[in-house]
Computed example of a mutant assay.
Amino acid sequence: MELKDLYRLVRRGEGDTLEFKRKAAHPEKIVKEFVAFANTKGGDILIGVDDNGNIPGVKYAEEEIYVLNKALTKLCKPRLKYEYNIIPLDEDESRAVVHYEVAESKKKPHYALPDENTDWGKAYVRLADKSIQASKEVRNVIKFSRRKTGRILEIQEKEKALLEYLGEHESITLAKFQEISKLNRYKASKILVNLVVSNILRINPSDKEDTFSMAPIINL
């Protein structure tokens, strides 16, 4: 990426595929942004750019890269793929921006670990300009959606009640589906996930409570 490309990218502002970071001072916090992009549709992370779009750059780009790459190696599970390059801001290269490009992963969901001695972590997804923790339903949708085997879906009484509800309402939560179906959380969640993976429903992640709505109809 060249300097002119950097300016063009920054003008877009933070969003579902772009994140700004002033420095890599707390790499364990930045790891979740990488995980969120890998679990969603990929994105770019710029080190040396303020949230408001100012570009002060960083003085020691190689040190920023070393610290962040070390954290990504130890605090991501499974390891994710990314590329990076240094973009000098002036001729003497006294300050620069580090550009990371994260691709949507074929091995998702990825997890951000709290420390290198822990074997469990949290999955994140990207929602607008934020990285939010993925619910169990979102994680299962990610996991099952990448399987290539076909799925057989039977529309039974509970599924019919759900689809009838969505015929009259824009969306439904897991809690509401439990209420109308009289199912426990596990069984209600399984039905919702199956319908999402079968492209009948769409899951709408949220940092409060996920919602489910009818998937858009594709005209062939």
Rank of each mutant, 00 (worst) to 15 (best):
E83N: 13
Y66R: 15
S131E: 06
Y60E: 15
V31N: 00
N69K: 14
V58L: 02
K41F: 11
I45L: 05
A61I: 04
D44F: 11
E137A: 09
K32N: 03
N39C: 01
N69G: 14
Y60D: 15
S105E: 04
Y124E: 09
K77D: 11
A134W: 04
Y124L: 07
A123C: 12
V125P: 02
I47A: 00
A112Y: 04
F34K: 05
L68W: 09
A96K: 00
I65H: 07
A134S: 08
K32S: 06
N52W: 12
V138G: 00
V102W: 04
S131T: 05
A61W: 03
E83I: 13
L89N: 10
D51C: 08
T73L: 14
L46M: 04
V141T: 01
L113W: 10
I86A: 06
V35M: 04
K108D: 01
W120I: 13
D92L: 04
R79K: 14
A103Q: 11
N52E: 14
K74M: 13
K136Q: 13
A134D: 05
A36R: 06
S94R: 08
N140I: 00
K108L: 05
K41H: 14
D119I: 14
V141Y: 00
Y111P: 12
P109L: 00
D129S: 13
V97Y: 05
L89K: 07
V138H: 01
N117M: 11
Y100F: 05
L46N: 07
V97Q: 07
H99W: 12
V97I: 06
I47H: 01
L80N: 02
K70P: 12
K106N: 12
K107R: 09
K70W: 14
N52I: 13
D90K: 06
N140R: 02
I45D: 05
D115G: 10
A36L: 05
I86H: 05
I47Q: 00
K122F: 15
P88G: 01
V138S: 03
V49C: 06
V102Q: 04
A103V: 07
Q133E: 14
Y60R: 14
L75S: 05
A134N: 03
A103K: 09
T40Q: 04
A36E: 07
G42E: 03
N52R: 14
P114L: 01
A128V: 15
E93Y: 02
A123N: 10
W120H: 14
I142Y: 00
K77M: 07
K130F: 12
V67E: 14
T118K: 10
D50Y: 13
N52A: 14
V67H: 15
I65R: 11
K81I: 13
G53R: 09
E104N: 03
A134Y: 03
E101W: 12
E62M: 12
G48Y: 03
N52L: 13
V49G: 07
E62W: 10
K122D: 15
G121Y: 02
Y66N: 15
V49E: 09
K70I: 11
T73R: 15
